[in-house]
């Protein structure tokens, strides 16, 4: 069983974002980066498939981006991936989902992966497009918003999350792409010995130009913080004073303390 897991490295969402000099993305300097949350579930699921098959499987962890993304690949290897692939691109932020998907598909095309795992969406861009587009480009079956996964032979029984907590159950045949939703499993933490072991694992690097043939399909005109319209009161400072103020406000503006 050959598996590919696509991981994106994204900034910590608790960061303060500043628009970059081109005005189309955020300034990356001074930000802490981590693996896209959804992609942790993707790696975990691939590892569970390998465990289910008694080890008869191979997991490639791929990320496109500048050198910093090697950290995310290494985390994937420390969790249990077998091999890392870094597709180097200093200007990833200028690529749209269509280009990112076409690069992943170009890498994967002649490698006969049975299963491709992606996150349902990336936390910074959040287009929820890359996984499905990869499937379409490779001609693979695809299920999105995965919250349950069972493999038996070459048949996957998948549970998709729908609105209001309802789940749709579907069956599909490999090869397939699945996009993973929060809560699919419990992603393991890399242990120290596994982090050490990951350092010995194969890590291949390619320039993005080896795989990029497509132009972007959409243009980002600009990025900006949302307008702070209709915002409420902001209370800051000493905890005890703030708590007193809040109690007074609740007494005045709501009926719950009466």
């Amino acid at each position: 069983m050959k598996m590919l897991v696509c991981v994106k490295q994204v900034p910590d969402m608790e960061s303060r974002f500043k628009v970059n000099s081109e005005g189309v993305w955020f300034e990356e300097q001074d930000l802490a980066f981590r693996m896209n949350e959804y992609d942790e579930y993707a790696i975990e699921q691939a590892i569970r498939v390998r465990e289910q098959l008694g080890g008869a499987a191979d997991i490639t962890v791929l990320s496109i981006g500048p050198d910093r993304v090697v950290e995310a690949i290494k985390k994937g290897l420390a969790m249990g991936g077998d091999r890392g692939v870094h597709i180097k691109d200093e200007h990833l932020y200028q690529k749209d989902p269509w280009q990112v998907a076409s690069v992943i598909a170009a890498f994967a095309r002649d490698k006969n992966f049975d299963l491709v795992f992606t996150g349902m969406q990336s936390q910074d861009r959040g287009s929820a497009q890359v996984g499905v587009t990869v499937a379409e480009l490779l001609g693979y079956a695809c299920v999105t918003t995965l919250v349950g996964f069972e493999l038996s032979g070459d048949i996957v029984t998948a549970r998709r999350e729908l609105e209001g907590g309802i789940r749709g159950i579907v069956k599909l045949k490999l090869p397939a792409v699945v996009t993973c939703q929060l809560g699919l499993n419990n992603p393991r933490y890399p242990t120290l010995p596994n982090i050490m072991k990951a350092r010995q694992k194969e890590l291949l690097a390619f320039p993005i130009m080896d795989f990029l043939t497509e132009e972007s399909a959409a243009i980002t005109e600009r990025m900006y913080p949302p307008e702070k319209k209709g915002r409420g009161l902001v209370l800051e400072g000493d905890i005890n004073e703030t708590a007193d103020k809040l109690v007074a406000i609740l007494k005045e503006k709501t009926t719950v303390l009466r």
Binding site: M13, F26, R222, Y224, P225
Partner: peptide
């Protein structure tokens, strides 16, 4: 974008 902390304008 960025968990609703930013916006982007696309064409």
């Amino acid at each position: 974008s960025c968990n609703a902390k930013m916006r982007r304008l696309l064409t």
